[in-house]
């Protein structure tokens, strides 16, 4: 039987294409950020999200506008996926007045109360109690928001993560803990840093359920995200999603990633790249054509070029900003 020429469900097709576009935006944005870093326009630490795009995009597809999110310092993708502007994020990376924190936060410290994005935190694991506290606020107020709290396989070894797990389950807080297992805590592989490599089981002693998810498959992430959010929203307490993913670049811009063979990253990129494979799927299913994807690529490139332009022309913050926003 010949395959149908058009997608069976147009509404869903748009949503799928949107996910593709969101992932591609993150990829192109991060590539450009890497370039600006190389040109000396971005300073300090800059942790790129390339390779992990399906995690945040799939989760955002599953989330509702009342759900909050919070993460660590590999945060550019999270900000773009929750609808923060590429201009504002890129201008923060260059430390300019037009940045989300008016140049005072940098790559690791951006926030948008409007988009319910609560940072952007530089201390490994510290965002986990904070996200649990946001969930506490949801329960206290009696709204049905859920806080999506992201952290990596490295942060999963911090003590405060387990302090949070205990209270979240004890008080049945609406929180989804998303462990982005990209296989490396900076330069130390999971096998070298974790006694138990299955992070979905990290909540077992607190009676918190966990699910392992293919974090390179945006649809699998979305499905698991919906299930987890629904679980937490229904008052059953926290749940863990372990996203098996991979970062292509080093830990930060200054990391040559010598601790792993080059072939490893090349193989993941070849066989499991979240964007390429999802694009192929869309074409195979008749959801999008090659031409559709090219158009998306053009649009995304334009957004990214504009953001780089904005980020390099926006002025540095006024010197008077040194003493503002400390206490009010």
């Amino acid at each position: 039987m010949p395959e149908p020429k058009t997608a069976p469900n147009i509404a869903n097709a748009e949503a799928l294409k949107k996910m593709y576009e969101d992932m591609l935006l993150i990829r192109r944005f991060e590539e450009r950020a890497g370039q600006l870093y190389g040109m000396g326009l971005i300073g300090g630490f800059c942790h790129l999200y390339i390779g992990q795009e399906a995690v945040i995009v799939g989760m955002q597809a599953a989330a509702t506008p009342k759900d909050q999110l919070i993460t660590a310092y590999r945060d550019h993708g999270h900000m773009l996926a929750c609808g923060m502007s590429a201009n504002g994020v890129m201008a923060e990376l260059t430390g300019r007045e037009g940045g989300y924190s008016r140049g005072k936060g940098g790559s690791m410290h951006m926030f948008s109360a409007d988009k319910k994005f609560y940072g952007g935190h530089g201390i490994v694991g510290a965002q986990v109690p904070l996200g649990t506290g946001l969930a506490f606020a949801n329960k206290y107020r009696g709204n049905d928001g859920v806080c999506m709290t992201y952290f990596g396989d490295g942060a999963a070894n911090q003590g405060q993560v387990y302090e949070s797990f205990n209270m979240a389950e004890l008080w049945k807080l609406p929180v989804v803990y998303i462990i982005e297992n990209n296989q490396y805590a900076m330069g130390t592989s999971v096998a070298r840093h974790s006694a138990l490599a299955d992070f979905s089981k990290r909540g077992v002693s607190f009676n918190i359920p966990g699910i392992q998810v293919d974090g390179m498959d945006v649809e699998a992430v979305e499905a698991a995200g919906k299930e987890a959010l629904s679980f937490a929203r229904s008052g059953k307490g926290p749940i863990i999603l372990e996203m098996k993913t991979y970062r292509y670049r080093g830990h930060s811009m200054s990391d040559p990633a010598k601790y792993r063979p080059k072939e490893e990253a090349a193989e993941v990129r070849e066989k499991r790249d979240p964007i390429d494979h999802f694009g192929q799927k869309l074409i195979q299913r008749g959801v999008a054509t090659e031409n559709d994807l090219k158009e998306i690529d053009t649009r995304v490139k334009q957004v990214v070029i504009e953001s780089a332009d904005f980020a390099t022309t926006s002025p540095e913050p006024a010197l008077a900003e040194l003493y503002t926003d400390i206490v009010i």
Partner: peptide, 12 residues
Amino acid sequence: GFAGIGIGAAFD
């Protein structure tokens, strides 16, 4: 843990 939970709630 509970200092962080308090701070998260204050952020909200």
